[in-house]
Computed example of a mutant assay.
Amino acid sequence: MFEGTDSAVVVAVPAAEGAVSAHRARFDPAAVWGVPAHVTVLYPFVPPAELDEDVLRTLADAVHTVPRFRADWNATGWFDEDVLWLAPDPAEPFRALTKAVFRAFPDYPPYDGEFQDLMPHLTVARDGTPAELRAVERQVREHLPISMLVTEVQLMCGSDAPHSWRTIRDIPLSA
């Protein structure tokens, strides 16, 4: 039904673009693919060819179990010294979104079940030397805090081809 090899459910964070877009363009392949600054809710998700009205309805029902919320990004975090990210506060509503969507689609565990503890985050940089990433961290910190009202998630599809990811549907949280 939709183009691409992969799909994902994300919370786009346009409020962060000014702080992170140049760094993501250089140090995060997902930015080159066309994925905006975001917090992942569930990836990988249902293959694009299998996204039909039933899947979209089930996804909307799951997302709608979580009320809209305000999130702030006040701090940076690290996965080892390889990945620099921004930490959302509060993190729990993002976890609630992931749990709700995964409960509705149990065949699609977050990150293929690779991680035990899911830490909601906005990836800033992951392909660079530790020194480059520390410099990015200093620059990004100058733009904190970032704040926004989270009112919806995006269902996106694409591949690892440049500029291939597109938002297929915006799905609202409950009021």
Rank of each mutant, 00 (worst) to 15 (best):
G113F: 04
V124Y: 00
L122E: 05
R103W: 02
L155C: 05
E114A: 15
A104N: 05
V150M: 10
E132G: 00
A104T: 10
E152C: 12
R103C: 06
V124M: 13
H143D: 07
R138D: 11
P109N: 09
V153I: 11
R134I: 11
I146R: 08
A104V: 04
P130G: 00
E142F: 00
Y108T: 01
A104K: 11
P120K: 09
Y111G: 03
P106I: 01
R95C: 05
A104L: 04
S147M: 04
P106S: 03
H143K: 08
V124N: 04
F102H: 15
Q154M: 06
E142I: 02
G158C: 14
R103A: 14
P145C: 08
L97W: 02
L149R: 12
L144A: 12
H121W: 10
P106V: 03
A100G: 00
V136Y: 01
V124G: 01
V124F: 00
L133E: 11
A104W: 02
V150C: 01
M156N: 09
Y111F: 12
H143E: 06
I146P: 07
R126A: 00
L149W: 06
D117Y: 07
E114S: 14
E142V: 06
A125K: 00
E137P: 10
P145S: 09
E132A: 01
F94A: 03
M156V: 13
L144W: 05
H143W: 04
A100M: 03
V153C: 15
Y108I: 01
P110Q: 06
P110D: 01
G128I: 14
G158P: 14
E132N: 04
P93C: 01
D117W: 05
P120Q: 12
G113A: 02
T129D: 09
V150P: 09
G158N: 14
V153K: 15
C157K: 07
P110L: 10
G158Y: 15
F115N: 14
D117H: 13
R103N: 12
A100W: 03
E142H: 07
C157S: 07
Q154E: 12
R141P: 07
A125G: 05
V136N: 06
F115M: 11
